[in-house]
Design a protein around this nucleic acid. Sequence first.
DNA 1: ATTTTATCACAACAATTGTTATGTTTTCAG
DNA 2: CTGAAAACATAACAATTGTTGTGATAAAAT
Lengths: 192, 192
Amino acid sequence: MSYDDRRIEVAKAAWQVIVREGLDRTSMRAIAQELGSSTGVVTHYFRDKEELTLFALEQVFENVVEGMKACAEGRQGIDRLEQMIFAALPLEATDRADWKVWAAFLGYSIGREYLVQEHRKRYDFLRQIICQELADLQAANLIQVDLDLTLEANALIALVDGIGSSIVICPEQFSADQQQYLVRRHINALLT
Amino acid sequence: MSYDDRRIEVAKAAWQVIVREGLDRTSMRAIAQELGSSTGVVTHYFRDKEELTLFALEQVFENVVEGMKACAEGRQGIDRLEQMIFAALPLEATDRADWKVWAAFLGYSIGREYLVQEHRKRYDFLRQIICQELADLQAANLIQVDLDLTLEANALIALVDGIGSSIVICPEQFSADQQQYLVRRHINALLT
DNA sequence: ATTTTATCACAACAATTGTTATGTTTTCAG
DNA sequence: CTGAAAACATAACAATTGTTGTGATAAAAT
């Protein structure tokens, strides 16, 4: 097993403790225990806790983005955008863990400017992706020409964010069908 | 100053420290310092930290709900619903503090089931209010008759939640006009 | 085979935490 | 005025935290 793989394993252990115990109770010792090792392993692969938590957040985010890109592959038009958004939704119970990590970090960022900046980077990244998709749809004359694409991208992100936040607290709040219905309805309002 | 007023003062100090430092760094000592007193005051008015934090959350929530009810007063129809939703949005910079507290608690709830239940209670409460408004609008034949009101109420809450979460990270993400535009567009899709 | 390096275990450190107990001061009814 | 109760201050407690340093063991390179 390579160095990077082992790093990811440690981050994954951290990730599991975060979901189970909460971010502020995710201590180095708890991560080591989850990993079945000593704290020496954790400190060996990460300079400090900040580096580890940021890496764990990065992993979760990359998983979501890769899922979105995989869903986009080979698709076109409105269906392509819809499927990309669907990939980010907590449609199944297994997706909820990602959203728990996301929500935990969001709350943990309050009062920590460097974490707010980290989140902002990811929001910007997502907005860029969605904006590009919307621009393509606009060029193909599939959505209205007078739309503020940045606003529409932010609106889509906010919609997904809201659904995700709700489901973290109330897992039965939206069924998978309902989530997709709401996204579809939102996107349909943009069509020509 | 009455006992209850002093309790609220302590909670408000906690509330300010949460926004500035983050929930997990909001110690009894930090609250006392913010209050300009000793920790003796804090422990005198609250049994333990859990009671204090839950009370602080309750205060923020009540402020928002009261704002919504005040906006509803004297209004009718679609305008009434719109204004209620607007009251919950972070339209001005001062509203963002409420959303920071909300986000901090949401993240802090991950892995703490008793806090998740507290949040769920509030989601249920909000859903009940919105549902009632939607039912009134439906009875007045102002919105479509075949709507799933619970779903639509949840969708509105998710929309507001998403906007609030986004703005905690990116304060310039949505202007006040844009927030209101998105809510209006969402509600317009429900009209008859 | 030997040395060097990566990996990991363990212990100790100071700092911070919530909580509790014990005082001190203020308030205020009798 | 007096004493009881409320309000507040202070200090100490054990527990937990991130971090660091010191070894031990395994892997790899020479």
